Deep mutational scan, measured.
Amino acid sequence: LTVQLGNLEWHFDNPEQALKMAEELAKRYQLKVEIDNGTLKFK
Rank of each mutant, 00 (worst) to 15 (best):
V3S: 02
Y29D: 02
A22S: 04
F12C: 15
Q30F: 12
F12V: 03
E9L: 14
N14A: 07
E34N: 06
T2W: 06
Q30E: 08
L5M: 08
L19P: 00
I35W: 14
Q17A: 13
Q17D: 15
K27I: 08
L19K: 08
T39N: 06
T39V: 15
K27V: 07
K43P: 04
L19R: 09
L5K: 02
L25T: 01
Y29G: 02
L31I: 06
K20H: 08
E24V: 14
G6F: 06
N37A: 06
L25S: 00
L8D: 04
H11I: 09
F42C: 14
D13W: 09
K20A: 12
D13Y: 07
T39D: 04
L19S: 04
K41A: 04
P15Y: 15
K41L: 06
E23G: 08
H11C: 10
I35L: 13
Q30K: 14
A26D: 02
V3M: 05
E24W: 15
V3N: 01
R28M: 09
T39G: 03
N14K: 08
A18E: 00
G38D: 07
T2D: 05
E16G: 09
V3H: 02
V33R: 00
E24R: 15
R28F: 08
Q4T: 09
N37I: 03
Q4S: 08
R28Y: 09
H11N: 04
T39R: 13
Q30L: 09
K32P: 03
L8Q: 11
F42M: 12
H11V: 07
V33P: 02
Q4P: 02
L8R: 15
Q30H: 15
E16I: 12
Y29I: 04
K32V: 15
E34S: 08
F42K: 01
K32C: 13
E24A: 14
P15Q: 10
A26C: 13
I35T: 05
L19C: 09
K32H: 10
Q30G: 15
N14Y: 08
L19I: 13
K20Y: 05
G6S: 04
A18K: 00
F12T: 02
N37D: 09
L19E: 03
A26E: 05
Q17G: 06
A18P: 03
D36Q: 10
A26K: 05
R28I: 08
E16V: 13
L8E: 05
Q17E: 14
L1D: 02
M21A: 06
E9V: 15
L19A: 05
E16W: 12
L31T: 02
K43R: 11
T39E: 06
L5D: 02
K32G: 06
H11F: 11
K43V: 15
G6P: 03
N14P: 04
Q30M: 10
L31A: 02
P15H: 11
K43I: 15
W10M: 07
E24F: 14
H11R: 07
K41R: 14
L5G: 01
Y29L: 12
K32E: 11
E16K: 12
E24H: 13
K43G: 07
I35E: 06
N37L: 04
Y29F: 12
V3F: 04
P15F: 14
N14D: 14
Q4F: 06
L5Q: 01
N7E: 09
D13I: 09
H11L: 06
L31V: 05
I35D: 05
L8A: 07
L25Q: 00
A26F: 07
N7Y: 12
P15K: 12
L19M: 13
L25D: 00
D13S: 12
E34P: 00
W10G: 00
Q4K: 13
V33M: 10
Y29K: 01
A26P: 00
D36C: 12
Q17L: 13
K41T: 11
A22Y: 04
I35N: 11
N37V: 03
V3Y: 01
V3R: 01
L40Y: 10
Q17R: 10
D36H: 13
A22N: 00
K20E: 09
L31Y: 05
A18Y: 04
W10E: 00
Q30V: 05
K20G: 05
Q30I: 04
F42N: 02
L5S: 03
K41C: 11
G6C: 14
H11T: 07
E16A: 13
T39Y: 14
E9H: 11
L40I: 15
E34A: 07
T39Q: 08
G6L: 06
L1T: 08
D36W: 10
E23A: 12
A22E: 00
Q4M: 11
W10N: 01
E23I: 12
L5C: 14
G38H: 08
F12P: 00
G6R: 05
E9N: 09
E34T: 12
L31W: 06
I35M: 12
Q17N: 09
V3E: 02
F12I: 03
N37W: 03
K43L: 14
A18T: 03
G38E: 05
M21W: 15
L1A: 05
L1H: 06
E24Q: 14
E23M: 14
R28L: 10
I35F: 14
K41M: 06
K20N: 07
E23L: 14
G6T: 04
N7I: 10
K41W: 07
E16N: 10
Y29H: 07
A22T: 02
L40S: 00
L5I: 09
G38N: 10
G38A: 06
F12S: 01
E24L: 14
K20D: 06
A22D: 00
F12Y: 07
K43N: 08
P15A: 12
L25Y: 07
H11G: 01
Q4L: 12
L5H: 04
M21Y: 15
L8G: 04
F42D: 02
L19W: 15
Q30R: 13
E16C: 12
T2K: 11
K27W: 06
L1F: 13
K43Q: 11
A22K: 00
Q30C: 15
L1C: 12
N14T: 12
W10H: 02
K27N: 09
K27D: 07
M21I: 10
L40E: 01
I35P: 02
K27H: 09
Q4G: 03
Q30P: 03
V33C: 06
